[in-house]
Amino acid sequence: MKEPLINATHLNGGYGQRLVLHDINLHILPNTITAILGTSGCGKTTLLKHLIGLLPPMEGTVRFLGEDLFQSDEKELNRLRNKMGVLFQNGALLNSLPVSENLAIPFEQHTNLPREMIEQLVRQKLHLVGLSSAYDLLPSQLSGGMRKRAALARAIALDPLILFADEPNAGLDPVTAKSLDQLLLSLKVRLNITVVLVTHEIISIKRIAEHVIYLHEGRILFDGSLSAALNSTIEPVQNFFTSD
């Protein structure tokens, strides 16, 4: 059996004194697409923030490549974060910088590559997500789907081992959503990237997810394969998948 990339054990988490997640135990295996799903307000995004090391847990541990994210010092945490890519819900591109500069940030901050090679890498990543023409554009000049693609290109800039995507298809039309799903799938197949999706888009889940974690009121109600989730007799899970 493969070693999990991410391991969360007895994780209690939330904001300040407000407990959102209760006793979460999960592991993410390499080269899989895992969908964390559930209805709005169930704690999906909070869980994502714990998994990427943005929000320290109240109790429990989150391990990435066997190392506890929240016991690591700043330098170590940044080294681990370089192996993660995160696609935020609204892209989170820096609006004051053109797309090319947005993509160049990770290379400028974490490598000593010469300028011309950074430029080559930026063009390469944009080409990979089908956005070569957006090189000089500002994020405000991009459509929602293009912004997501540009943010995805930035997320995979340093060839991460794992890619987290928070509601990647939110606000996108079905055609753009499908093409983004296919892009995520091809990244997984071609680059061996592990993908963790936080979503409640059933079509998208059925299209690309292999593993499903269902959250309900801050607790994991289901953790298994997509086919098992589709045939689950657990009522909220059943309701979720039959609601489309």
């Binding site: 490598t111 590559l113 090679m117 080559q120 890498l121 390469q124 060839d159």
Partner: peptide, 11 residues
């Protein structure tokens, strides 16, 4: 070889 390696070869 990774993407940076390919970029270097292209460069």
């Amino acid at each position: 070889l990774d993407s940076a390696g390919v970029a270097m070869l292209d460069q």
